[in-house]
Each structure stands twice: as C-alpha cells, then as structure tokens.
Design a protein around this nucleic acid. Structure first.
Lengths: 342, 342
DNA sequence: CACAGTTTTGGAAGCGCTTCCAATCACTAC
DNA sequence: GTAGTGATTGGAAGCGCTTCCAAAACTGTG
C-alpha cells in the first residue's frame, strides 16, 4: 500500500505481466477468465486507478474534448443560451466518458494564447467551437490544423467544415408566417447582431415570409439589436415611431427588452403589438405576457454536436458532416392567438 | 518536415542534446545565449510545440484544473450567477496558463462516474468545487483525497477545507438595515433554498439586523424560494397576505419574480412595498423598478478562487486558506431611497 | 503421438517529455 | 602551470501506460 500504485504493482500482486494486467484493464480479449478475475480482484482490493495521463500518452488519445467560445460570445453568457448549450455538451461528454475542457476567450490575447494549445494534437482529441462573428478567422485556422472539429452554428465560407445548426431560416419563416396569418401587415424585426450567421439567417427567414405574402421589406421596420435585453429594448424604442403592428424578435432576451419598451410607451401586447420571439428559453415563460416563440432544442443541440465530433474523431473528417435541427413554433400569449394557424 | 516533430528532432537540428533543448523550452538556466538562440530559431522555423501530455507525464503536473458543479447546481445555470462565476474562473485559468476542465454533474450517476476521475491525481492538478446542498458528501470525499481543492462557498463541517465565500451575513445585514433605516417595520424575507449555506447565511444576516432593532423575526414573513424567478414569484404570493411593507429577497432572480407578484397584486414598488435584493447581476438593472441590491463581486470571486487553488497547489494545503469577500449595497429604485442611509 | 492451428502470455519497445547526475568546459587564483 | 570554481552540456533513467510480436500453452485432428 505504501508503494506507488501502478499497473506494474497490480500485475505483480496478481502474478501476471503488466501486459496482461493492461488487457484486463481495457477489457481486452485473450485473457483466461480466472486470470481476469484475479487481476480484477487485486484492482478492487487496492483501489487502483490508471493514470489518465500515462494512458493518454501511450494510446495517443486523451479522451478530452474542448469547447471553444470565441470572444464576444462570452458577453452573451448573460443569455441563457450558452449555459444551456454548455450543459448539453457537458452531459454528452459524461455519457461518452469524455472530459470537457472549456476555452472561453475574453480578448484577442486569449485567442493567441489558446490557438497553439488547442490546435496541437495531444491535449484535445477534438473541438466543438461556437461560431463567432463573421470575420473571425479562428475557425478557419482550426480547420487547417488536423484536430477534429465541429462547428456549432453555421460558419461562413467553410465548405469542408463539419457543422451543426438549427434551421434559423425556417424557424424565422414560421414565426413571421404565423404573424401574417393572424392578419398583421406592418411586421417589424429586431434582428440581433448582423455579424452573426444566426441573425442573418433569421432575418432571411423574415424576408422570405414577407415576400411570400407579397409584402415589401420595409427597412424602417427592421432594427439591429445586440441579442440582449437592453439590445431589444433600444431596438424597440427606435421601431415604435414607425408603428409596427407586430414584431419578430430574434431572441427571447431581446423580446424581454422589446416588451419593456412597448409597455413604457403605454401600449399592450398582444393587443396593440403582437410579438413572436426565438429561442424558447426561460425568459419566454417569465415574460408577461408569455412569449409565443420558436423553440430551438438547445440541449439536444449540444448533445448532437458532441456526438458528431466523436464520429469525426472515430471515422475521420470525410465526408463533411452537416446537421440541421428543426425548430418548432410554441404558441403562448404574446401574439393573441392560442391556436396555431399553420 | 515529414518526420514527427518531437523535441528530439528539434535538438538534432539545433545540434544539441534533448536535455539542452528541454532547458531552452522551459526557460531553464545554464544555457549559453548563443545556444539558446539557435534552439529557439529551430523551434520557430519548424513551428514545434511540445506535446502537453508528455510534459504532464514527465513533470507530474498537468496544468489543468477542474471546476466541479454538483448536481442541482446545474439547474441554477439559468441564474446568471454560475455563468459569471465560470467566466471569472476561466479568465484566471487563462491568465495563469492553466486549462479548465468542466465537470457538471447532472445526476447522481455522474457523481459516481466523476469521482474516480477527478480524485485520481494525474489528470487534474487541483479542483474548484462549488458547494452544493447541505448533506452532499462529494466535498468531504474530495477533501480526503490528496487533490488540492478549493471550495467556492462555505462548506458545512469542514474545518480543514480551503474555501472562499462572500460575506453573506454582513451583506444581508446591510440590506435589511437599509430597509430599517428607511422606516420599514414589517420586513419580509424570501430566502432561497435553506439547504444551501448561502441561503442560511443571508437569512442569518436578516435576523441579526432585525434583532439589532429590537424587532422579532416573524415566521409568517419569511418564505423559502428556489433561487429562481418562479421561486421568488411563488414565495412573494405567499407573503403578500401578511402585508409586508418591505422585502429582502436573497437573489436578483427571485426579486424579479417577487416584483411580478407584487405588480399582479396591484401594488407598486417601492411605494407599497420596498424591495432590496442580493447579487447585482444583470436582472437587477433590467427589472423595473431597478433593484437596490447587495453587489457581490462574482467575477473577482472566481478569479480569487483560482488563485487560492494555485497557491494550495504550490505551497501545500496547510494552513487552510479562508477568503471572505466583501459585498456592497447598491442603491437603485426599488427601495424609494436614492441615497444610502448607512 | 505428432502436427497445425488457436489462445493466452509476457518481453520489450515505445509514447514525448523532464530531470538527476556525472562529465566537460572555461576561467580565475595561486 | 595547476588546482579549484562554477557555468554548461548530454547520457540515461524515468513518468505509467499501450501494443507489437514472438514465445508458450493449449486445442483438436489424423
């Protein structure tokens, strides 16, 4: 017991070679049942546990994957989205016996510092990286390295990237179509930062729905927010003078702000202005009125991202994987309808 | 270039031994400047980066620390507190060139699975663990293992634990004293789960302030919530019939719910009921009226936790470290006073 | 009972690095 | 010119595991 407890020691006590002990440890074949039994007993008795780092070095895989959140995303950690996503990813890691390493870049310096560490094969078996703003080249650089990578969210101009995303266009389209079916004509949009593909895609879905109903996209009814409560509030204040009769807001957090601005203006939702949102995270049910919103399966999204990554790790990067997850309209109170019209 | 790029290879190209190359890599002493220069050039030219796992194995330290969030805490990931804390911890890790591994337990099974992995020296150089509910024995077990550990939050009955906490008692005391100075007599409390030391301590501060003003603690004015918006809402609904003229709510998220319940009852804040909160996270400024609240330095808390841990790693566990961080009353609108009375 | 074929086993070579220690070297002081 | 000093260097032994490969021990067959 006083000796360092290594596999050698276990093997010695069980009267076998280290090789055999290793086989038992890894459920390898070609070990006589009674021998396996004996080794197992020694392991149990001594409480031996293998040294994970030694295993990593010898087997050339660490069983660790990294979650990389580019800078600026971190500001969004206020949004319940990232915590939820992280939870899904963590869960999947547990379930598959992987350890999760978290890389939150807070500034450019972090990025410089991280890149060597994560792109070097060894520490990480693979990476899930959240898309950041358009123009970030971290993803591109990562894809050049030989570390298996899955992008969460649609990256721009990365034909070979493995990525997973929700169907933002379809989701926004459904949301706005719902408003149109309810008879709204002057539908405004609070878009979220246009430097993200999520905002762009949701905006595209908004435009598509309007066009299908032969309505023009009125630029004065479109306002960019910052995916936060304040962002939604400020955007809504700028939109109010243009008298929209409905609003499509690209995130629940922004919707909260929008509601606040609307109430401050003495108007009520959904009577004066209907609101349809995107996310279906806790703010949606906390808001008064509760938000009709596009549900996106954030937790499942995280789980799936990890599973994709493990697939890439196991079976190589070709062909590139694409997964688009469906969203769903959840009818609550902020549109005045309690029945889906689609 | 086609060869695997190891330190051996670098050494060979620079015409030195691997030992010397290693010295250069680690800024070791006793290398002639010109030799160092030469090795450095080869490293730059080849883009060599050391294999972190090999370094860990040889040096017996991984430069990885773990953040452990016990189960049930994960439910609180909706609260902005944990994301913020995580951010602080991540930041500090970056700054000190440590990698952060995240262990979020979602169920008991996770706990069983994690324990062997994290308590085994090797993967982790140390652990920051968030206190969970009273009765969780994970912390106790972890403290028995020889992995350096710092507890975030006050653990119960762990005399030797290194821990860091905010001064919850003093904070709550300040909050309630503020209400008392404003002339309130029937001050209610929404406490948060009493199975956490944070809730217990804040409640203790509440009681202490009342007692100092010779007021009894009226049990009908105290209600346990769940540290969420809904929790605060429900607690407030139960409190309203007892006609409090002020409320001390143990978290901003709960305060949001309390405000909602108060407004639904047709009362206004601060006119009919004053509210003082705890946390000073984003909900505090989003709320209408904005919350007068006890600011706790969450980010700095995370940073400090990591720094304590690094200290323990470096200098050993004795003597046990204790850090209590100060809180601060932030006066906003929900108490009717725009001036501090303390 | 010998032989080919299959399991089971252990020796030994790594994985890529750190670090102890002894050897070498360049000086200074005598 | 030589012993003594400290700075520099490299050989070699690990760190604790996996895995290749050859040897040993079985199995069944003719």
């Amino acid at each position: 017991m006083t000796d360092k407890l290594t596999l050698d020691e276990v093997a010695k006590r069980a009267g076998v070679s280290r090789t055999t002990a290793s086989r038992v440890l890894n459920d390898g074949p070609n070990v006589r049942p009674e021998v396996r039994e004996r080794v197992l007993r020694v392991i149990a008795e001594t409480g031996y546990r293998p040294h994970p780092v030694a295993q990593s070095l010898a087997s050339q895989q660490s069983h660790v994957i990294g979650l990389v959140l580019p800078r600026r995303t971190e500001a969004l950690f206020n949004d319940p989205y990232f915590p939820r996503l992280t939870q899904g990813i963590a869960q999947a890691c547990n379930d598959h016996d992987y350890t999760l390493a978290l890389f939150m870049m807070q500034c450019e310096a972090d990025e410089q510092k991280f890149y060597p560490r994560i792109s070097r094969k060894g520490l990480l078996d693979g990476i899930v990286i959240q898309v950041g703003q358009i123009g970030d080249d971290l993803i591109a650089r990562l894809l050049e390295s030989d570390v298996p990578t899955v992008v969460a969210g649609r990256p721009l101009n990365q034909p070979n990237a493995n990525y997973i995303d929700v169907d933002n266009i379809a989701g926004a389209h459904t949301a706005v179509t719902h408003l149109l079916h309810l008879g709204h004509k002057r539908i405004g949009a609070i878009t979220g930062e246009m430097r993200t593909t999520a905002a762009l895609d949701r905006y595209a879905g908004y435009c598509k729905a309007l066009q299908e109903h032969d309505l023009p996209v009125d630029e004065t009814l479109v306002c960019e927010g910052y995916f936060t409560e304040i962002g939604g509030y400020e955007a809504m204040r700028r939109l109010l003078p243009h008298k929209p009769d409905a609003i499509f807001s690209a995130s629940d957090a922004m919707s909260l702000g929008a509601l606040r601005a609307i109430h401050e203006a003495g108007l009520t939702v959904p009577h004066d202005i209907a609101v349809v949102s995107f996310d279906d995270l806790p703010p949606a049910t906390i808001a008064r009125p509760q938000l009709t919103t596009i549900h996106q399966p954030v937790h499942a999204f995280g789980v799936k991202a990890v599973e994709m990554l493990l697939d890439v790790i196991k079976n190589g990067p070709t062909p590139p994987r694409r997964v688009i997850m469906e969203t769903e309209l959840v009818i609550r109170e902020s549109c005045g309808s309690t029945q889906s019209k689609t």
